[in-house]
Design a protein around this nucleic acid. Structure first.
Length: 192
DNA sequence: TTTTGGATGTCCT
DNA sequence: GGACATCCAAAAA
């Protein structure tokens, strides 16, 4: 088991989205370590993707990190929740990959504490849920994912990967039909 | 300075 | 299936 180097992220976004499946996402806090296997991702291809925050190369304070190098964290606060993305592509090309679900691995006691009253299956089967269970927050914005307290390391290789339309972007024109969502076939922790 | 709306989750009916 | 919680940045005024 080893932390994925910066070079790992130097591949086309759609390819990286699939490569991340089965990798272990780790967050270390004062309370301890929590981690899980990534089992569901979605690609957001900046300039050509109407559903992306960076559509048409729109550069703002919020999307700024997407214009940086691949391998950094892009956290985004949505309503009452925080979402976690991995920045992809080279600098000046605003692409990223949203992690939608993980399979709990380490720090199960911590996650249970952070998700009181829920079954284990419901701890991390959604983009807002997994950040809460792992302890990822807006303070991780822009963090390089190659060192603690937040990083990704190699895991297992999924037997089969499924792909389909993305979720939660119904008002994004034809971009909503792009098959840019990937998940580990048959894994019970995918959001739906 | 004010308004608007969102890559969601949870609880209610 | 539907309402609503609750916060920040973008866009409008």
């Amino acid at each position: 088991m080893s932390i994925l180097p910066r070079e790992f992220y130097q591949k086309p976004t759609l390819e990286l989205a699939k490569a991340l499946l089965g990798c272990e996402l780790v967050k270390e806090t004062d309370e301890g370590v929590a981690s899980g296997y990534i089992v569901e991702t979605e690609a957001y291809l900046g300039a050509q993707d109407q559903a992306a925050h960076s559509f048409n190369n729109k550069r703002t304070k919020r999307t700024e990190v997407m214009f940086g190098p691949a391998g950094n964290a892009y956290t985004y606060v949505m309503h009452t929740h925080c979402l976690f993305n991995v920045v992809s592509a080279e600098p000046e090309v605003p692409e990223a990959i949203l992690v939608r679900a993980v399979e709990p691995l380490k720090g199960l006691d911590l996650m249970e504490q952070r998700r009181p009253g829920r079954k284990q299956k419901e701890w991390t089967d959604g983009p807002g849920k997994l950040t809460k269970a792992l302890g990822i927050d807006p303070g991780d914005y822009g963090h390089a994912l190659v060192r603690p307290p937040l990083y990704i390391q190699s895991g297992y290789t999924p037997d089969h990967i499924s792909e389909g339309k993305r979720i939660g972007i119904d008002n994004s024109g034809e971009a909503r039909d792009y098959p840019w969502r990937f998940w580990v076939t048959g894994n019970p922790y995918v959001s739906r």
